[in-house]
């Protein structure tokens, strides 16, 4: 039963969805503060390269994760500065960040006498549990078959959800994203809240990137994450800015990415479907989800922060 095709697909979907969970929840936290950061792709790639480099140099996965988090946050601080302090157009700034981060990550992978590119990682995140726990029917592979970061991603979802809806800081965050003028009048420091959460979002995106280079495809290659950063932005809308929904949305997309491999193992006639067509599946799914969710009256109940992407200036009259 644990070896059934369905089970294998589900377990694989969890793995493929994990980096999306980090990046999506990071972007949810960022957008909840009213800042739209379209640079997720760049932040993830920077996290991927920084994490790989740190682990490659030190042999420590922990330092790799730390480096990824710092790299993601550092890149996002550029966006925080332009969009919060300079009140620039957030779409332009975010897109620039995506392009800049991708280019920089690729460059960093190629420089030096002994470039990273082509090298396998010295350490890799392995499944945490072995033995009878994993052999339990059903729950074994589903609950105990994963590496540490999968459990961290569940923890992040739980913490983010509690933080948003049950703490004082979460309330300030939601208020700043909805109505910064009112939040400020109530004594909330709008700039501070926005800075903190844009950086947090960047850190989580960096962590998501590192999951690719330290767990999913632990060899440095030029484009290790595909379009995960862009998918994460779509998943924010699909999960209507709620952390738990982001987990399921990410797994759904993980499954869609996995389907092409599953179908090939099924043999005729399934394996005749061109794989290029199947690799389109996650993107087609993203487009359909966007259309269904954001069309007509439904968009109003979606829960986008009302002040999203609007710069705030206190003395505006």
């Amino acid at each position: 039963m644990n070896d059934s095709l369905l089970m294998l697909t589900v377990v694989a979907a969890i793995g493929l969805g994990t980096p999306l969970i980090f990046a999506t929840i990071g972007e949810i936290i960022t957008e909840r503060s009213g800042i739209l950061n379209l640079g997720v792709q760049g932040m993830m790639l920077m996290g991927a390269v920084a994490g790989f480099w740190a682990t490659f140099t030190t042999g420590s996965l922990l330092l790799g994760v730390l480096a990824a988090v710092v790299a993601g946050a550092a890149l996002s601080s550029i966006h925080a500065f332009t969009s919060i302090t300079l009140r620039a157009n957030q779409i332009v700034s975010g897109l620039a960040l995506a392009i800049f981060g991708a280019g920089l990550a690729s460059f960093l992978g190629k420089i030096g006498n002994d470039p990273l590119v082509g090298n396998p990682s010295r350490e890799v995140f392995e499944p945490l549990f072995t033995g009878w726990l994993v052999d339990l029917p059903l729950v074994g592979p589903l609950l105990f078959g994963h590496d540490l970061l999968v459990y961290v991603s569940w923890l992040v979802a739980g913490i983010a959800s509690y933080y948003l809806f049950h703490t004082r800081m979460g309330l300030s965050l939601r208020a700043v994203g909805e109505d910064p003028a009112s939040a400020e009048a109530a004594g909330v420091n709008v700039s501070k809240v926005r800075y903190v959460h844009v950086l947090t979002g960047g850190a989580l995106a960096g962590l998501g990137g590192a999951y690719f280079s330290l767990a999913l495809v632990p060899t440095w290659q030029d484009d290790p994450i595909g379009a995960a950063g862009w998918i994460a932005i779509a998943l924010v809308i699909l999960s209507s800015w709620r952390p738990w929904r982001a987990v399921f949305a990410a797994y759904l997309f993980g499954a869609a990415s996995r389907v092409q491999f599953t179908l090939q193992t099924l043999g005729e006639p399934w394996s005749d479907i061109p794989s290029t067509l199947l690799s389109m599946l996650p993107f087609v799914l993203a487009i359909i989800a966007m259309i269904v969710l954001t069309s007509g009256k439904r968009a109003r109940y979606l829960g986008a922060p009302a002040a999203l992407a609007i710069p705030y200036f206190r003395e505006e009259r």
């Binding site: 049950h166 703490t167 800081m169 300030s172 939601r174 208020a175 909805e178 109505d179 109530a186």
Partner: peptide, 24 residues
């Protein structure tokens, strides 16, 4: 008015209040 339309009355009262617990 400087009230956050999507929040409840109680949440608007709590917003930015420095004397409250971290947990709402």
């Amino acid at each position: 008015f400087r009230l956050v339309a999507n929040l409840t009355v109680a949440e608007n009262l709590a917003l930015g209040h420095p004397g409250l617990d971290v947990r709402l």
